[in-house]
Nucleic acid binder design. Sequence first.
DNA 1: GAGCTATACTTGAGAACTCAAGGATCATAG
DNA 2: CTATGATCCTTGAGTTCTCAAGTATAGCTC
Lengths: 163, 163
Amino acid sequence: MSSQVLSTQAVSSAHDLTETAWLRFLRAHAAITRELSSRLEALHELTLSDFDVLVQLYYAEGRRMRRIDIARSVLLTASGITRLLDGLESCGLVAKERCASDARVTYAVLTGAGVKKIEEARESHNADIEELFGSRFAPEEREQLTELLGRLPLAHTAEACSA
Amino acid sequence: MSSQVLSTQAVSSAHDLTETAWLRFLRAHAAITRELSSRLEALHELTLSDFDVLVQLYYAEGRRMRRIDIARSVLLTASGITRLLDGLESCGLVAKERCASDARVTYAVLTGAGVKKIEEARESHNADIEELFGSRFAPEEREQLTELLGRLPLAHTAEACSA
DNA sequence: GAGCTATACTTGAGAACTCAAGGATCATAG
DNA sequence: CTATGATCCTTGAGTTCTCAAGTATAGCTC
């Protein structure tokens, strides 16, 4: 790490290489999410997590999901989701809905305002992602990168999303 | 995103590809750092950020750095560093040191205990990184990945580290 | 149908940040 | 030498999470 690790030259053993790659991964994540979330906040008053949840709901069947499934798909804890949805509910973007067959679960449903919001926000946000992330790579590099990243642990996401 | 975006099959346009790659990047980061930091905490009572700062100091000249430079290299704000170092100082891993030539700056210096701590922690932590991240890739894939990640915005890290 | 365990959700307390503001020192320009 | 502005650091307040504990419901087993 430090000087050696982030400069390209000192890359030598397989081990240092892993360290370099990991450090770049970490720093890039910090730098990009910082910028993305500040833009998202400024333009749409949404957190990156808010946005993430909204998009999950947007694509879900009936634009509705169990809270626990949201938690798993965006990698937050159940209690994190409770608090996050509290916010989105008080903004009128999401509503609660009881489940007929299981009284333990409450669905989160996207409201009309929520749909509108996410459609607006997605435009600028996708452009930002393209600028800060995607545009760095040629088409076939994108595929490579996507494939490589796909080998990393994604926790429950893959399962939750391949359903 | 959602179903389409994280499954490999629905990958089609360049745009969706960027979205997929970005989502994988985000989720992988969440999943890996969660696991890494829980192991680090359990074995060594260190945060991922603590560790990061400690390693930066470990490799710095004289094992000493200005707080502002630490902030830039690990991508935290100055105030975040103040609080983080407060913790490390009260654990005796790091000490303050006045700068002779500039009274505004206080250095953070790694103590003997700090050196020992980081050398211990690095062993298991590097193994964890290898397990959760590096081991997913063949040697030449590591180089590819490292190169690709190097094109992403790393904020001040590159400058701070190439010095 | 009584008890057990598992699941879904919420809540209180606390960790790890951020931002905005303030204090101290430095560097420069007049 | 003195004002001006930049830089380094800290602090108070607020945000967004987490973990642990608690409540309520479900389903299974005997």
